[in-house]
Amino acid sequence: MNPELGLDNYSQKGAKTVNITFIDRDGDTFKVAAKVGDTLLDVAKENDIDVEGACGGTLACSTCHLIFEKVDFDKIPETATDEELDLLEMAYGLTDTSRLVCQIDVTDEMEGIVLKIPTETRDARNL
């Protein structure tokens, strides 16, 4: 869909991948192979998951905010910097296990993790 994403760069043979699951705004789940070393935002974009990433991963907005399961959250090697925390405070639906995924590289330990796109809390949903 977006030619600028350069799909070919991501299909190099032999690149190590782990399985990651995204749950999108509509509650739909997507299990994807994430290349170790890519950022989680790259992985989402690559797989056409609805993670906005408005500033292009430059740590200037909070639109790549995703929510981790507690156990997965603890697997992220780097804790959030002050700058990331500053932006997270403006994120929508902030939780204790929220991160900006442009700041997180995929590691071997992330096999099987589940990431959720924050949604509004509503009493009733009509789809």
Partner: peptide, 23 residues
């Protein structure tokens, strides 16, 4: 009030409302 992320979520809500009526 709010930053681009707040406007995004707010706009999504409106789009979902339009979609409901279309559906």
């Amino acid at each position: 009030v709010g930053v681009i992320a707040s406007t995004m979520n707010d706009a999504y809500e409106t789009a979902e409302r339009v979609h409901e009526d279309l559906t």
